[in-house]
Structure formats: structure tokens, C-alpha cells
Design a protein around this nucleic acid. Sequence first.
DNA 1: TCCTTTCCGTTGTAAAAACAACCGACTTGT
DNA 2: ACAAGTCGGTTGTTTTTACAACGGAAAGGA
Lengths: 219, 219
Amino acid sequence: MKEYIPVLKRTRLFSGVGEEDIGAMLSCLGARLLTYRKGEYVLRQGEHLSDIVVLAEGCLHIQKDDYWGNRSILGQIGAGEIFGEAYVAPESGTLLNDVVAVENSAVFFFDVKRVISTCSSACRFHTMVAQNLFYAISEKNRGLVQKLDYISRRTTREKLIAYLSEEARKQNRAGFTIPFNRQQLADYLSVDRSAMSNELCRMRDEGLLEFEKNRFRLL
Amino acid sequence: MKEYIPVLKRTRLFSGVGEEDIGAMLSCLGARLLTYRKGEYVLRQGEHLSDIVVLAEGCLHIQKDDYWGNRSILGQIGAGEIFGEAYVAPESGTLLNDVVAVENSAVFFFDVKRVISTCSSACRFHTMVAQNLFYAISEKNRGLVQKLDYISRRTTREKLIAYLSEEARKQNRAGFTIPFNRQQLADYLSVDRSAMSNELCRMRDEGLLEFEKNRFRLL
DNA sequence: TCCTTTCCGTTGTAAAAACAACCGACTTGT
DNA sequence: ACAAGTCGGTTGTTTTTACAACGGAAAGGA
């Protein structure tokens, strides 16, 4: 476990906490470290979860098989990232997805009850970890609300406008770059790539915007 | 402020806390109570927010005007409900929506920093309120992930299947009722009502399911 | 340099959704 | 009992998307 403390130190959850303090806190947080081989399931859809999951090493996929066996990959978890925050409330429903190791991986599990109840012993930074977790969920929440705002538009054009306007506003200038290539943007907005590419060019021809690669300018 | 303590007692945030303890906690949580007349803005898109908002009385709409002035209503806040959890992280982006009073309303604002940092004085239930908030966000998060899972499907049929399967699984029986009428379900899934109604009947004719009003049975 | 891969625009076709409009059943209030 | 409103199904038309397939440009590696 100790060997991963430098990794933990760089995570959102332990931001602002020193390595010695992390080491001292591990038992107090009920930390468990498990390793998985490529292809193994870390969590399964339908299970209950009462731990916050932090990936120390490797790569996980969040995926779902529908009842015809079609698999869709909803997300990826890289080293240092958190998972499970949405499922740890006492009355929470079960996991909505499978989590599978796509590389050999090392995974920390922290008992959420012990994370958010400050312990009686003298963990100086326990409160900070709890707050980090709180803020992490809060920001994830905002990201979900935003994505939902884009995706709930009816047409591809509306989705693009919603996304690009927000990105322009956020970067606060006429020209801005987006962190996606075409395929990734299409996946993010849940539309077909070629249809989206089509729509983008049509909007350009109508004089609504300009673009080159992932650099855009709204007119 | 005191007159709303019975209302607060029934909220998710103060669940498990007695009225006297709530009263004692109000100042310690940095509570402010503001009233709004019907039509007034409570919060505006683009603002920063560092408070958790609890509606004590009235009704608020979460809405957004796009840059052509088209207004869309994304949600409603009823008495006792919480808002703002997605925006209170220190580095969080600004509010993505307007919040408007559609009735005369009374609104509590709680400084989020004071909610999640247990105070030095002897607020016995402060920790419980912080945990309640944490779990509330966590569950809201799960709801968003789930909705996103439905809406990101390409066709109306796929959205319906995703939603109905999950609802069947959740209620754990072949027959189940949904908490929406047709228009509300269409709004929730972000599709056209008549197109959805069409698709539902087509699925029924194909023998995939049966329904009557808001009672369904998957076959 | 040559080969392979990735990225992105383009086209055509088939499928699906949006939209508008209408109807009958049922509820609700007066 | 009547009028008004809500709800859900249906139809037909137009718009939009998905899908498959192709080609050229650019990037990267052997």
C-alpha cells in the first residue's frame, strides 16, 4: 500500500495533504488495496457500493451491456481518478454500470462512512479529505448537468450551438479550442460523427461560424 | 426565520435533527432568509454561488434562455428542496441556469463552507447536516448519470427500452407503474410526445410490452 | 520513401423523428 | 348537464438523422 502514497498525493481526494499524513490516515479511512488483471471485473452492475474507489495504477472502463448483449463504453477511469461517489449514499440504488480493468490495475477502496465522519483520533487532515470529496462530487455534478443540457437538445445543430456557445463563454473569447476531435465530440454529444461533420460544415457555409481542426470561432 | 424551522426539519438537509437543534444551528451555518415576489430572479446564469439554497416556501423554476431568447424550463424546485450543490466548489464554474420565483417564495441560503466544516462550538448535529448534504448530492449524481444513460441513446425506442427496463428492474416485478404521464415522460427523455406515443404503440403491437395509462408490463 | 493509420469531409439512401393537426375518452369545475 | 381542459392515440408531411461507404490530407513508423 505504501508504495502508492505518492500517487494518492496527486489525486483530487488527497489534494493538500502530505505523504506522511496520507500514510497515517490510510487505516483510519478503512483503506483496502486490491489488484486486478486485465479483463477482470472490479465492480458489477446491480451491486451495492459503500466505498469510494480510487485507481492507483492501470486503466478501468465504465461499461454497460444491454439486454441484447450490446456493450457500450460510457467512460474511462485513469490513474488518480475517483469512482463510486454516485452510489455510496445509504439508501442509494445499485451500481448502474460494470467497471472492468482494461489493464492490470491497482485499486484503492475507502469506506465512505469513515471518510465523511471525522474520526476521534487526531487525523489532522481528515476533514480536508472529506471536503475534497465533497467538492469533487459537486463539480462532477455540474459537469453532468451541463452535458445533459447539451444532449437534451433535439437536433445536432442545437447540440452543437449549445456546446460551442458555452465553450466560447467559458474561454471568454471569440476564438477558442475544444478538447475533442470530431469523433470524440460526436461521442460526447451522442450523435453520429458524419452527420455532425455535415452539420458543422453547413453552419460554416451559412456563416454562423468558422473552424479549423479543433479551433472554432463563432460569428 | 424561526417560523420556518418546522419546514426545515422535514428537508433532506436537516433529516434527523430536532427543531431546537436546527434553531441553534442556523447562525452557525450562516443562514440567511430572503423572500422573492412572483417573477423575481433568485439566481442568474453566470453568477458564482457559494451557498446551498433551500426553498422554505413557494415554487422556483430552473430555466435557461438561449441566445435567441427561447426559454426552456429545466426543472422545478418545490418547498423543502435543495439547489446549488453543483456550483459551490471553490473552483467551480458559474451557474448554468437562471432560478426564478414562479410564486411568492421564501428562500434559505446556507454558506457551504460553514456547512461542511464542523464548527468549534458544540453543534451536536452539524456533522449530520454535512453528511446529509453529501448524500443528497451523491444521490442527485446517480440520478443524473441514469438520465444521461437514457437520453444518450440514439432512437426513441432505445430510450424507452433503457428507461422501462431500469424501472422494471428497480421495482423488481414484471408489471410496474411509472411516475410520469406521457408528456412528462417525453420531456424527461427529451423526445416528442407524439413520436414517443407512436413508438410505444408500435412496440406494443410487436409484442414487446403491454401498458395501460402509466402501468407497464415488459414481455 | 513507402506503408499504415487516423482524421475529417462528402455523398446517397433508408430510417427515424419532429411537427402540426385532429379525434375521442375522460375529468373537472360551475 | 354543459363547457373547458387534459390526456393519449393517430395520421400525414417535412425535416433530420443514422448508416455505410469513399477519398483525400496529414501524421507516424519502419
